[in-house]
Nucleic acid binder design. Structure first.
Lengths: 235, 235
DNA sequence: ATTAAAAGCTGATAAATATCAGTTTTTACA
DNA sequence: TGTAAAAACTGATATTTATCAGCTTTTAAT
């Protein structure tokens, strides 16, 4: 039986611009033959800051938050990874420990690839290496933007930006579904925007009053994305 | 006459862990033969956010701030690059425009290498590519830390961290000189810590009263680095 | 369907930080 | 080296944001 029979190739054709799409069939099959599936429940920790990375993860289904926890226990979400994205590879590449932790935002299916197998593909494929370099440089741009956002923006602007980012994350993949409801806790939202939970709630109410969004229980539905973008003051 | 006669090889053996040190003599000479020196005065802009990169820069002498300017004109310093460091290469690698601007913090000598020549070396040397990948991943860790700092820390902690970073930047290179005086404007310090200039001054006074540092005009001398680290609450 | 636990929400208050309007000192350079 | 411009500094005040304590609603598991 062929490998693509065990792990149907369609399963991996992510709609997003996945780095994996640059791999040749051969390299891709190599990775697939060395991967193992892992399922995580909502809130479950995938890896913890400060530990030595054993390999990399590919998000096959679900969403993963990457975050740092300070000494007071407060967590700051750095990034939300979606289907098709690789996580934990920075630490493998730099030879350092994880700079942040990762946990499932919802029930999530991950593909785990041991560090040595990942490095093997990297050594085999200059093409993949260049693509990774490009991806990393792009991520760099994104992080650079995040820094100026966190250092200079108001709470309202930060929340607006977080909502815009989440909207993309929740939209992209479920292309079938039209609704872009964000199913995320107020705590996670606060940790993403870097503001207090109570203020998230107060600001959401403001946004609601202005007709920008509506809520139903925990769920947030963005109604007027234009106004939200304006709120964020983001260029 | 050999190239190393025109550009003495010693001149390039930076004390810092420069990425360039991984290049073979051949590749290094290739870069050197395609470089051109550029001098910038204090405050002079090297490249501007949003423009298309023409190449990369190597800091041969001096210090460079990388920063983003928001619509109100307020600038946020993202990074301070020292001798031996490469700047502007993320944009070249990702094929995007510069996400931030760069300006000289003091009189600075830069080596400019056109994008195509830089990419040529990259294609020639898998070794260099891998080293760059590693460097980028490491920088990623640093930026990740910056985000949680800016999102969650108090003004005093942020200023303390900025001072610690600057101390390293001003120390590393001038190994001959023992003094670690920081010659930086209050405005730059404020833009680095992401706080108001007046608060920088007030906090510096606090630190002075606690015997952590002393000032002489604009110059800051750190006296008690231990206490400063403690102030920063940095792990 | 019931119900404990978790999450969401509210108002009051405290704390942190920015802004403003100056004065004083330092710097750079003619 | 004198001097204008720039930068550093100060105190008062306004604004923003966090914290606290308690109440209400939602969620998820039996």
């Amino acid at each position: 039986m062929s490998l693509s029979g065990i792990f149907p190739i369609e399963r991996w054709n992510f709609t997003t611009q996945s780095i994996l799409n640059v791999l040749t069939d051969e390299d891709f099959k190599y990775l697939v033959s060395h991967q193992s599936d892992q399922e995580y429940h909502k809130g479950e920790v995938i890896f913890r800051e400060g530990t030595v990375p054993a390999g990399i993860f590919i998000v096959k289904k679900g969403k993963v938050k990457k975050y740092k926890t300070d000494r007071t226990g407060k967590e700051q979400i750095i990034y939300v990874a979606n289907e098709g994205e690789l996580i934990g590879y920075h630490a493998v590449l730099s030879g350092e420990r994880y700079p942040d932790s990762a946990a499932a935002l919802e029930t999530t299916l991950l593909s785990f690839i041991p560090a040595e197998d990942f490095m093997e593909v990297l050594n085999r494929s200059p093409n993949f290496t260049h693509r990774l370099l490009k991806a990393l440089s792009h991520e760099f741009t994104v992080l650079t933007n995040s820094i100026s956002v966190f250092a200079q923006r108001t709470a309202a602007e930060r929340l607006a930006i977080a909502l815009i980012v989440l909207r993309e994350k929740f939209k992209d993949v479920n292309a079938e579904k039209k609704d872009t409801d964000l199913n995320i806790s107020r705590a996670d939202l606060a940790n993403m925007a870097g503001i207090a939970q109570e203020n998230v709630i107060r600001l959401l109410k403001e946004f609601k009053d202005e007709g920008i969004l509506s809520t139903e229980g925990r769920k947030i539905r963005i109604i007027d994305i234009q106004s939200l973008v304006k709120k964020s003051n983001y260029r």
